[in-house]
Amino acid sequence: MGSETVAAMAAGTWKLGDLEVNRLGFGTMRLTGNGMGGNSDGAPIDREVAVGILRSAVDHGVNHIDTASFYFSPLRSANELINRALAPYPDDLVIVTKVGPGRDPSGEWLGMAEPGQLRGQVEENLRQLGRDHLDVVNLRLNGVKSLAEHFGALAELRQAGLIRHLGLSCVTPAQLAEAQAIAPVVCVQNPYGLDQRIADSNGLMDSCRRQGIAFVPFFAISGQRREAPADDTHDDALLAVARAHGAAPAQIRLAWTLHRGPNVLAIPGTSDPAHLEQNIAAGALRLSTEDMALLEAVSLEAVS
């Protein structure tokens, strides 16, 4: 199945508030380079190739794009690429961005924004994307224990009509509950994958499942390598499942993630057009009970 063209809707759909999306989406971080993804040497890919990847993703049924204004390099901005590739935007396209951490124009991280600075970050996303409102904004926590002031500031912007729905990123179950006391949360975006399962052990995954909140893993393929390219070495059980399905190990990792629950979405990113088709094709893979048991052993070994 590795090189087949399979529409993103094969994985099914879920709603972010009132916005229905296909569960297989696309993350833009790897399009920008310079420490925020891109080629293995950190360089961004050709602009027209990046634009082509975004257009191809949408042509294949992707209608959930993940981005942030802090996804940029000296030569590339993820939001600018999205605007160039996809505007005027299809009616069903949902663009999810995130605010909280900031970077100066040279790319240096500035730490967590103050609550009063979040409006400026929201407006920067609006400007770069060419939108009059943002579909979903995730508050990305960066060392903040209590999120009340930050999330309250975003709730005010939601009331003002600049944001349609709110989500969270890099949070604990307690922080999710704290946010929900302020405003509805439609999604939680945390690191999660076959070898990265803190959200299982701390109850966050279960809490999202019970409440019908979308759980959106990132680093689902690269795991603990994070922004680095996915490792080319894999557990024997993972390789066996991949061979049985005629699939790449990365596709099995994505399929396993999607099998964790109907509310689990996927936003794999890539700077390689061939990998884009592989990732989308993973949404059509159907893992058996036996496959999941084999992979469960892999993931338990990774977290033990």
Rank of each mutant, 00 (worst) to 15 (best):
G2F: 10
S3I: 11
T5A: 13
V6E: 06
A8F: 00
M9H: 14
A11N: 05
W14G: 10
K15H: 14
L16F: 03
D18E: 15
L19I: 02
V21R: 02
F26G: 03
R30C: 13
L31H: 01
N34M: 14
G35F: 09
M36T: 10
M36K: 13
G38N: 01
N39E: 11
P44L: 08
D46R: 07
D46N: 13
E48K: 13
V49H: 15
V49G: 10
V49Y: 10
V51H: 07
V51R: 08
R55Q: 12
V62N: 00
V62D: 02
H64T: 01
H64D: 02
T67N: 05
S69M: 11
F70R: 12
F70W: 12
P74D: 02
R76H: 10
R84N: 09
Y89P: 08
Y89L: 07
I95Q: 09
I95T: 07
G100E: 02
P101G: 08
G102W: 13
G102K: 10
P105I: 02
S106M: 08
G107Y: 07
E108W: 08
W109D: 12
G111C: 06
M112L: 09
A113R: 07
A113Q: 03
G116H: 04
Q117E: 14
G120T: 09
E123Q: 00
E124R: 13
L126R: 05
R127P: 10
G130K: 04
R140F: 15
L141F: 03
E149L: 06
E149A: 14
H150Y: 02
H150C: 04
F151E: 01
G152A: 00
A155K: 04
L157V: 00
L157F: 00
Q159R: 12
A160L: 07
L162F: 09
I163R: 00
L166V: 06
S169E: 01
C170V: 14
V171R: 02
T172G: 03
P173F: 07
A174E: 12
Q175Y: 01
L176Q: 11
A177F: 10
A179G: 01
V186E: 04
C187H: 05
V188G: 05
Q189K: 05
N190C: 06
L194T: 11
D195W: 05
R197E: 08
I198S: 12
D200K: 15
S201A: 15
N202H: 15
D206F: 07
S207E: 14
C208V: 06
R210G: 11
G212D: 07
I213V: 09
A214K: 01
A214R: 00
P217G: 11
P217L: 03
F218G: 03
F218K: 00
F219C: 02
I221N: 03
R226E: 10
A228Q: 15
A230G: 04
D235P: 11
L239W: 13
A242L: 08
H245P: 10
A248W: 10
A248Q: 15
P249D: 07
Q251Y: 11
I252A: 05
W256S: 05
L258N: 01
N263G: 07
V264W: 04
A266T: 02
I267M: 00
P268L: 03
G269C: 02
D272Y: 14
A274D: 15
H275D: 11
Q278P: 09
I280A: 00
A281P: 06
L287W: 12
S288T: 15
T289E: 14
E290R: 14
D291Q: 11
E296N: 10
A297S: 12
V298A: 06
L300S: 09
E301C: 06
V303L: 12
